[in-house]
Amino acid sequence: MTTKSTHAVELRAVTRRYGAGERAVTALDAIDATFAAGTFTAVMGPSGSGKSTLLHCAAGLDRVTAGDVLIDGTPVAGLGERALTRLRRDRVGFVFQAFNLVPALTAAQNVALPMRLAGRRPAAGEVTAALAEVGLSGRAGHRPAELSGGQQQRVAIARALVTRPAVLFADEPTGALDATSGAEVLRLLRDAVDRHGRTVVMVTHDPYAAAHADRVLFLADGRVVDALSGPADAEHIAVRTARLEAARATGAAGDATSSGGRATGDAGRSTSDNDSAVTR
């Protein structure tokens, strides 16, 4: 049994299938993964590899077909909609690619929203401090439409962190930003881990963004096919990604001629195994 203190999020043999019967699509295929507290993990993979589904399932936004998800030691399975919402509210923070903020509310109101929804008044200075942390102390009264894309993402980070969640999930947080704003967002996420001991799980397709993480998980066809530990440089990550894409293309070509869908997954796995062997 994993104890609560070591893993912020744990996935045990998680499978997520969409649809039923002949046309069923397996987005996650019996994935095991753990995200230790105080770490920054990037999840990468070609589009359709299941990286977004992984994030949604790990965050309790989406239900799993089989397997268990534990957030901060609490199993998600069996929780009702209300209990699940509370768990998300208390232990999980989110930063999406875009549309993170309620347009009707000011930056400060957006940051205070999770606390308001939990029925408590933010402590004096709590919201101001959170905004100051992301360098937006002067923008508390601005509405999202009056902020740049990068500033909006920073407000989203402030909101995600203000409740001191067990884990912060970021889904392509820099995807819609220019390089400078993106770098700023990534620095804030890195700071959250380094200075405040938060746990961050970030889905990205950008090797430069992934390079900010402590660990990179590579997904293909619903499985974890590779992992890189320790700070890795962007170039290195890009090479891995390219290989994965290439293997996938080969696998897909093979798939067209062979009989089963499993072939793709196996091809991906064997390639990546070889690859990691080479790298080590």
Partner: peptide, 15 residues
Amino acid sequence: RELGLLRAVGATPGQ
């Protein structure tokens, strides 16, 4: 989308 966002950041269906 906006209502989905509210749900994501912790609004219960009742809220």
